[in-house]
Design a protein around this nucleic acid. Structure first.
Lengths: 217, 217
DNA sequence: CATCGGGATGGTGTATCCAATCTATGGGTG
DNA sequence: CACCCATAGATTGGATACACCATCCCGATG
């Protein structure tokens, strides 16, 4: 069943993940042009995996192809960013609703586990663990929706939303308390509440752009 | 500005478009496995453009990679299809709303032109022209939203929605009268009406799956 | 100072080559 | 006769080399 091949992560997948990380971490700046050769040298792989990775990231909207001139890390203007955020709200709402509708035991167990661990890490003030758990939160809801396509698109949309704008970070400090409330509502199968919390979770915070979000316990 | 290179469509883009067309037209059936070699021979190109095309289509959700075994045309189950439809409604609504908000003169002119030509083709019973215009309809609204990312994602979502399910076509006869009403509402900047019509346009028709939709004038 | 031209750079596409691995065929064994 | 395993062939994954051409840079020239 689980053959060697399906366990093996191909070099191109690693390459995709690594370049994606470089972009999202801002090590590759928006607008920066990437050449196959320099990227292949930087990552220590041949040009071929890099080329395939570029195609993939192009489809994800993280880079754009410049004919005969390689690719460039995309820059988002404010309008584009607003649109992406709106897309994200719409799709996250669909995801959480479908997760509740499906009520998959496996997913519910994962959510319970996440809730427990998150509460523990939060109480212990273990920020590192909490960050990891916060990252997992949306992923689980995406997968819980039962649609691979929705999950993939959501991932792209989130990456866009976290993408740097004009060189400055656009990421907001995730709030565990909000995540915890959404998980609880989801486990309670309270569709209306879960969606309401999710909407607020995603919209509320952009009014005071750049403000501090560590005020939660 | 418009150099030779930017006019030139790369072979890999042609390859992507061709394979995508083969899938959407059902010439490559859902579940069918595709090999790089046979596809490259079929299209008369080398393996490399095909490989890049596979990565691209993988990101679009039209094929899925089987490690060490190439790719397979994705099959959608009913739940996946329902989810895709829901995603589409949400995103098309965002697109039409943003198109109205932007009120780009260029886009408005294109819409007016589309409306006029569509009405003429409809009156003349020129179904071929009308089909082409119907195809353009959603594209224009996607681009009119002013977000490249939204436009791209919408294209993928539409492709998913048109994808074959269980071997039988899933496409519905587009209704020009509905499109015309949406365009008119958009040009009138009647946001509420346009969104309402769009929602109905996309949802109404799937209750009596397989029914006739040519009843409109 | 502007423009033209040519070389350097780098993306695109093809052709090979090789390793890893999946699939299938076929033979052996209980 | 059915099942299991091994070997062989086919295919993907990856690297490399090369041809081609568009773009870019820079210096020479008007």
């Amino acid at each position: 069943m689980s053959s060697v091949g399906s366990r093996h992560r191909s070099l191109r997948d690693e390459t995709v993940d690594e370049i994606r990380r470089l972009i999202l971490d801002g090590e590759l700046a928006p607008g920066e042009r990437l050449s196959e050769l320099s990227m292949s040298e930087r990552l220590g792989v041949s040009r071929l995996p890099v080329r395939e990775a570029f195609r993939r990231l192009e489809a994800e909207g993280l880079v754009e192809a410049l004919p005969r001139r390689g690719v460039r890390v995309v820059e988002l203007d404010q309008h584009e960013l607003d649109t992406v955020r709106e897309m994200r709200v719409a799709l996250e709402l669909i995801a959480v609703r479908r997760t509740i509708m499906k009520a998959d035991p496996q997913v519910r167990a994962t959510l319970r586990d996440l809730l427990e661990k998150g509460n523990a890490a939060s109480a212990a003030g273990d920020r590192e663990t909490l960050d990891a758990i916060n990252d997992q939160f949306h992923d689980v809801l995406g997968e819980g929706s039962g649609s691979r396509f929705l999950c993939e698109v959501l991932r792209s949309v989130r990456n866009q939303a976290h993408h740097l704008v004009g060189g400055k970070s656009n990421a907001v400090e995730p709030s565990w308390s909000e995540h915890a409330a959404i998980i609880t509502a989801t486990l309670d199968e309270d569709e209306e509440l879960a969606m309401m919390l999710m909407r607020r979770h995603l919209t509320q915070r952009h009014a005071n752009q750049g403000g501090l979000h560590r005020s939660q316990a």
